[in-house]
Design a protein around this nucleic acid. Structure first.
Lengths: 334, 334
DNA sequence: TTGTAGGCGTTATCAG
DNA sequence: CTGATAACGCCTACAA
């Protein structure tokens, strides 16, 4: 923006002048071609081509009050976890003529309100937020902005607006049940301490204890969990454990670290160490040995979230909230 | 955007009215607080607070001709490869008050022009592009738009504008030299066929042949290369090879696949199979065994690219082109 | 330090 | 099917 030298950037009036039509007609050729005669459209398109006109969506957005932009907030792209949802979300919206503004929030509770304010100042037509627990201030910000919002990857009693998620406590409980069913009683928890990992942990611990098992160790690694820290935690765990253990990991990265250390130590899986990850990223399937993990349909979540927003943008005001199923994929580490 | 119900979204005139000042004063409080008296600023801030005013950057951008937005185009976020550059780029620009619009281009030659046109229609104040080889049309689009552009992660005789990259052929050559120096003569190439991977491959092959070695096998996997396809390629390679081989992989994902298969087959590394990856992602360091790879300072690239853009935006018009060093990190697979 | 006037480039709306 | 006119909400430039 802001050309300094040479001729200024081409605008709609330039195209209109060259084609011998009103600016509004150029606009129509671009946004509603069916409402322009074929010959006129042809002339206009020729002018656009020779002038190299690129429409100014900032001006268009101000006038139409539609930015044709959807913002998506995810914690990080350093993990594979959110790659699928983002990709599916983006693809679906692009096909509908929207662009996605991707914002990274990090895991610490870096002032989400400030980030939202920044985003909202661009007047997105819709918003995807990861997680479903927001401050009152954030919720007010969002409702005041009157923007459709989809929260994904979590669940809450009262979502801000629309929701495409699952219950992390249930995930933890499912892992516990799975381990218990396979006869494990001594369990360990290794992982990060972000909100959702904590929810999974809680579900796991509760269910283990209710089922007659016990938690023999807990090891924390900083979020987002990397392999190095997870291996370190695993080493500590293996040095102190006194018998077979089933380990509930907060992500596949963590699980990979645990499996790797177990293998290097010659521990048998699942006899000595059972492991379950979370995420079902390629590594869980294609490393050796592959390991058991929780699979969530990330692409489905992304696509559904996009469709919910599109429906709302089409004027369909029904509330939309779905829970996406998850499942444990057993791959030999129990 | 486009509220339908209830009161309309608060705008600058509402704040001005409540604070008893002109709209311009509110604008100043937000954008140049030092030019407003403390008391006035206080009143204005109070009004902003109670009304929940969120500035409209679309309107502001149209007026000021600055979008305060920088667009970044990367092939994918499915690989860890670009996570560091993106993160560093984003962090640096955020500190300077810019937001980053992340766009994914994919690897196929999906019409880059169309993507650029879309992006430019938002009038970004600057652009980061991955790769340095563009069509003439794309270059014209970019120069006509008069936007500062940094190309990263590659090099070219005539970059579009600024450049923070390295020569992929040199990378391939360095791997070849490394293998040759360790006494390898029979080499294989496994990997994707995207532009830059091909450049590395070319540098590798040339240097191997010039150095008296020979290429005994080449295996292709679709881009972006995943572990599964890489393992499959490795299996084929190992079934057909007749002696020790040094394998040049197009990425760490590929190398992980090769190392995994080699380990499962009981092949010794590096005696039977030497492996070198590209990217130095955590997996190369923290999987077992760790493997040799090429390390590039991704964060440095991202930060430098951001700084180049910021300098240009400050009005400094000097050309900026740097080559970022890379190095081979030997980790035991030779 | 604060205010006024005008315009940024496009599209909604209504008229022809 | 096409055009004229008036916003859209803010900021530049200038004036007081």
């Amino acid at each position: 923006m802001k050309p300094r030298t040479g001729r200024p950037v081409v605008k709609i009036t330039d195209v209109a002048a060259m084609a011998g039509v009103a600016p509004m007609t150029v606009s129509r050729v671009l946004n509603a071609p069916e409402r322009v005669s074929a010959e006129t459209a042809e002339r206009v398109r020729a002018a656009i081509e020779t002038l190299g006109y690129v429409p100014n969506l900032i001006a268009g957005g101000l006038s139409s009050r539609r930015s044709r932009m959807i913002a998506a907030v995810v914690p990080t792209i350093a993990s594979q976890l959110f790659a699928d949802p983002i990709q599916a979300f983006t693809d679906t919206l692009e096909r509908a003529g929207y662009q996605v503004l991707l914002a990274l929030s990090g895991y610490g509770s870096h002032d989400e309100d400030a980030l939202l304010r920044q985003i909202l100042s661009r007047r997105p037509d819709g918003l995807l937020l990861t997680g479903a627990h927001r401050s009152e201030a954030a919720r007010r910000l969002l409702t005041d902005a009157r923007v459709p919002v989809v929260e994904i990857w979590d669940t809450a009693e009262e979502p801000t607006d629309m929701l495409v998620g699952f219950d992390h406590r249930e995930v933890g409980a499912a892992i516990a049940t799975h381990f218990l069913r396979h006869g494990h009683t001594d369990m360990a928890v290794v992982g990060a301490r972000d909100v959702r990992a904590m929810a999974r942990r809680q579900g796991f611990v509760e269910t283990v204890e209710a089922g007659g098992g016990r938690i023999v160790a807990e090891h924390e690694v900083p979020a987002p969990a990397n392999i190095a820290n997870s291996r370190a935690a695993a080493r500590t765990l293996f040095e102190t454990m006194e018998g077979p253990v089933a380990v509930c990991c907060s992500s596949d990265n963590v699980a990979f670290g645990v499996v790797t250390e177990a293998r290097l130590r010659g521990l048998r899986m699942p006899e000595d160490v059972a492991v379950c990850g979370f995420g079902d990223i390629e590594l869980s399937r294609e490393s050796a040995p592959p390991f058991t993990t929780v699979s969530v349909d990330g692409m489905g979540i992304g696509r559904t979230a996009a469709e919910f927003l599109l429906a709302r943008l089409r004027g369909d005001d029904s509330a939309r909230r779905v829970h996406i199923p998850f499942r444990i994929v057993a791959r030999g580490t129990e």
